[in-house]
Each structure stands twice: as structure tokens, then as C-alpha cells.
Design a protein around this nucleic acid. Sequence first.
DNA 1: ACCGCTACACACTGCGGAGG
DNA 2: CCTCCGCAGTGTGTAGCGGT
Length: 282
Amino acid sequence: MDLISYNDLLGSLSDLSMVKQNNGNLDEFIELKEQINTIVEDLSNLDDITEDNLCTLIQKEPDAVPILASCVGLGREKLRGQLTHRLGTGGWVKISRKEPQRVISMLEQFNLIERLKEQLSKEWTFNDVLLERYLWSSRSATSAQGQGRDLEDQIEEIVKNLGLSCSMRGRFTGRGGNTAPFDLAIPGENNPLIVGAAKGFNSTGSKLSDAVREIEELADVRLPRQFVFAFIDGIGWKRREADLRRIYNLWENQYIDGIYTLVHLERFKEDLKNAAVRHELL
DNA sequence: ACCGCTACACACTGCGGAGG
DNA sequence: CCTCCGCAGTGTGTAGCGGT
């Protein structure tokens, strides 16, 4: 088989999003538009926006749920995440038919009724549309970073308060000279005696699998004398129970020495103290 | 047999740190 | 200062499974 030149390969790359757009999903667009029209009409026809009235609405038309959710800033994934977290299911069709009250009161936690009244009566301009688009797309990335770091910061604080030195985010060398990434290493990057991985996810996706793989890698590379702790939190894990269980199995089978969420930080403090004493760090 | 749900794979985004 | 790239997100499609 002949090789094509690298430059030919490079030159042959095409913009997949352009190709896709040509297919034109005009029908779906029209259908969606009609659906939204119907829902907005139904909403406008209610004599008042109340929980009871909204219950009747979604009971009849469960497809209205994701549209209502978008009024309080929840996209499909976020909506599923919240449903799993608060109601124990990721789907909204069935539960809307059977127990609409629970769905509506979940959404009401995000001030659904207030938002709806506000947005239904508003005279929308192009400026408003642009602003909404901009906020919607940047909402994710900007606020996300903070959440992830929060878990790490709290862990770092505990370590520092105990009077231990540590370094955050890096790679350490373990068995057979293999390396693995860590989020926490005590006393430092070189020859750490205690290593930790922090994984806080509110959303889902293959990222969670990546996170598990990272922890597995850590467990695999550890030296027998090294302690390995995992810190996890966020409702994303509720929609990735298979991944969570894999981490838990690592603990169960003693590949790692502990798993902690934010509410377990006191337990972590104790375990850390014991581990540090055993290594004569304290 | 069909429908709805779950689990998962994959693509894309904005920020921020590292290195030229 | 610019560019590259990793990270934690969002969003979407689909295979497989279980209930009706």
C-alpha cells in the first residue's frame, strides 16, 4: 500500500460541520417550531401560571418538560442530571405522566414559575436573543472551572492545616519507573508517600470514564508503600454509576486506600493523619 | 414488537498554564 | 505576546435492554 504524502493528507482534511449542514434538517426545524408554538400557546391560555396548571400541562404533553427546563437555564443533560439527583430517574416522559407534581416542584426549585411569567410577558428584541445566546454558550465553561477546583482547594487546605507539605497536579513515578498523573502528592512530586486524585463532576460524558481510568492508572502504578486516596463528588456520578462502582471496587479490593466526597472530609483528615504518622511525616 | 430508558462514545467550547 | 494543549464542561447519536 502506497503512502500519500503528509502534505496531501493535511490538504485533504475537510470541515465536517459544513458537510453536515448541507443535509438540511428543515423538517425537524419546522416540527420543533410547531411544538414550541403549541406549548407557548398552552401556557398563554392558562388563566394563571401555577404548579397545578403546569402539572396538567406536562401530564398531557411530557415533551414540554425540556422546553420548560430551558426557561430556567437547564439544557437536556443538566435536566437529566437534576432529575437523577432529585427524583431518581433520568427520563421525564414517564414520570411526567404519572407524577407531574414531582417534576414541576423540582423545576420550581429553580424558580420556574417566576421565570416563566417574566419571559412570557417580555417583548423580545434581537438584542435580547443575542445576549441569551451568548450567556447560554458561555455559562458552561466559565462556571465549570470553579466547581472542579473547589474540591481540590478544600483538600489542599486540609493537608496544609495538618502541617504537611504537598504539590498539586502533576505526575509521579511509581512501580517499574512508570508514571501516573496525580492531583495531590505528599510530601511532594518526587517520591510521594501519599497520592490522591480529585474528580468532581456535575455533568456526565466519557470524561467520567477518563477519570476512572486515571484513578486505575494511579492504583496500577503505586508502590506498595504508597497510600492512594480518591476524592470524588458531583451529581454527574449518579448518571455514571458503572464508573463510580469501578472506583469503589478498587477500594474494596484494596487497590486504593480510601474514597471521599465533600461530606467525608473529616474522615479523610483522620485517615490522612494516620497515614502520615505511619510514614513519620508527622 | 415496540417504546422508553440507560449507558456510553464522540465532538466541540472557553479558560488558563506552559513554553516559544 | 502568541500558540498550543489539557481540563471540566455541554450537547448529541446510538446500541442494547427491559417492560408493556
